[in-house]
Computed example of a mutant assay.
Amino acid sequence: MVKGNRKFVALLLVGIMAALVLLSAGCGQKQAGSSGEQNYPTKPVNMIIAFTAGGSSDVQARIMQKYWDKLVKQPWVFQYKTGAGGAIGFAEIAKSAPDGYTIGGVNVPHIVLQPLGQGAQYTIDDFEYICQVVNDPQVLAVRKDSKFKSVKEVLDFAKKNPEKLKVGIVGTFTGHHLMLLDLQDKTGIKVTQVVYKGAADQNAALLGGEIDVMIGNVNDVMRSLEQMRVLAVASEERSKFLPDVPTFKEEGLDIVSDIRRGFVAPKGTDPKVVQFLRDTFKKIAEDPEYLKDMEKAGQPAEYMSGEDFEKYVREQNEKSKELLTKFGLLKA
């Protein structure tokens, strides 16, 4: 009888120990899972830039990285996927694993125009929108020693010499391309379009004499103002970065054009991760020191939440369909 009781007690103790082990393992798994979510990111995050190193998109992201590093333990690893006016890099973001460890910079209207007119390997539905960080008006610029001193002189030359004026732009189906089409449509000029992979390449081409004029952005020209002359800015009002430069409207042309820069993640990224990214980017965008750095770099900061940024992109998509149809560039 005693032996039986001992056997029973021993079995009971073994059973209790086994239950405790299983319970402990279960709790451990649950805690590890919740800890993993709380600690995101647990490894470096890939940051895809669709334009050349040293260009406007890269410069802005580098400034943002400085403040990301103050808030998040894991760094960004920059990857440059250039070409086709950004379409190669944007597609790379879209097709990346939606695990929170690949994000990237996008430009508007590029991400709208390229799927519509080029059949790009992505659409505006392939992204989770984190935020907009820049609203960068476009400009018409020449080399400092250029014979062109005004927009009127450029247009007069182009009208008298069809297709002789070499105009540099970054990519086709980009904001630069769209502005050039708008300029040609409203003035009737015919030019030779010269396409570059990124702003750094385009600036070098202008300064090296490969092209006569370039359509760029405020930030594209800020780092080379000593060597360039900006003839006009395509904004409603004069830029605070270029207060002495007239708007196209002042020059008699109704042209308003800009490039918005923002950040996205691949579609399907965990909503909690997307929210973490949105919250972190918002904190950075509101940091007074970040805004000072942006101004020093000639980056026209303008924050827009992920939800509002996506809404803006979809609105531009509808407007761009009309414009591309007008020029016969809408891809069937």
Rank of each mutant, 00 (worst) to 15 (best):
L183K: 02
E310G: 08
L330R: 04
M304K: 02
R260N: 10
P266M: 01
G105W: 02
W68Q: 03
E310L: 07
G4Q: 13
V139R: 05
P137S: 05
R278L: 11
G198L: 05
K152T: 11
W76M: 09
I211M: 09
P271A: 07
M17P: 02
I211N: 12
T52Q: 12
D293Q: 04
D270V: 01
I255L: 15
F90T: 02
D69F: 04
D254C: 08
P75M: 04
G262L: 00
Q60A: 15
A19M: 11
E295G: 07
D201C: 02
Y122T: 04
I284P: 06
F276D: 10
Q31D: 10
S35E: 09
G104L: 04
L323V: 12
G33D: 04
Y67A: 00
S150D: 09
N46G: 09
P109Y: 12
E226P: 00
L225P: 06
Q114H: 06
K296Q: 05
V167D: 06
D156C: 07
V21M: 11
D270R: 05
A199T: 14
Y67L: 00
Q184K: 14
G188P: 01
L277R: 00
V151F: 10
T247K: 07
F309R: 06
K319C: 09
H177M: 05
K283F: 01
E92N: 08
D136N: 15
F276Q: 03
Q316F: 14
A91Y: 02
Y80M: 07
H177K: 05
P288F: 04
F78R: 05
V59A: 14
A120M: 08
I63V: 15
L178S: 11
E295Y: 13
L183C: 08
I88L: 14
D287T: 00
L291S: 02
A25S: 10
A53R: 13
K296N: 15
M304V: 01
L181P: 04
A120G: 06
E163N: 12
F309G: 12
G306V: 03
D58P: 14
H177F: 11
V154M: 02
G117M: 07
I124K: 03
D145K: 01
D254S: 11
A232M: 12
V213N: 11
K326Y: 09
R229V: 03
E302S: 10
S24K: 14
K166P: 01
V194G: 03
G306D: 11
Q29K: 14
D293L: 00
D99R: 02
V218S: 04
K3N: 03
R143V: 04
